[in-house]
Amino acid sequence: MIDLGPHGGYILGSYAFTALVLCGLILNAIRDQRAQKRALADLQAGAPAGDRP
């Protein structure tokens, strides 16, 4: 590992923050698309039994 000098914490911190935000963005996008796909599949198959009166 290379020596980061006295300010290593700031450098690692900024990379960690970037990774955190990007991971959040990507995971949220995947979760959202899965939810929409599931809703679409439900609707196309006819409403699930629970919704019917």
């Binding site: 990007l22 996008a29 698309q33």
Partner: peptide, 27 residues
């Protein structure tokens, strides 16, 4: 490139969301 891939991916999600909305209203 990362931003563009994310953009394309979320655009697909938005299109799906619109389909879901239309189908829900129709239902």
């Amino acid at each position: 490139l990362t931003g563009l891939s994310l953009h394309l991916y979320t655009m697909r999600t938005e299109i799906l969301r619109r389909r879901v909305r239309t189908l829900t209203i129709r239902e």
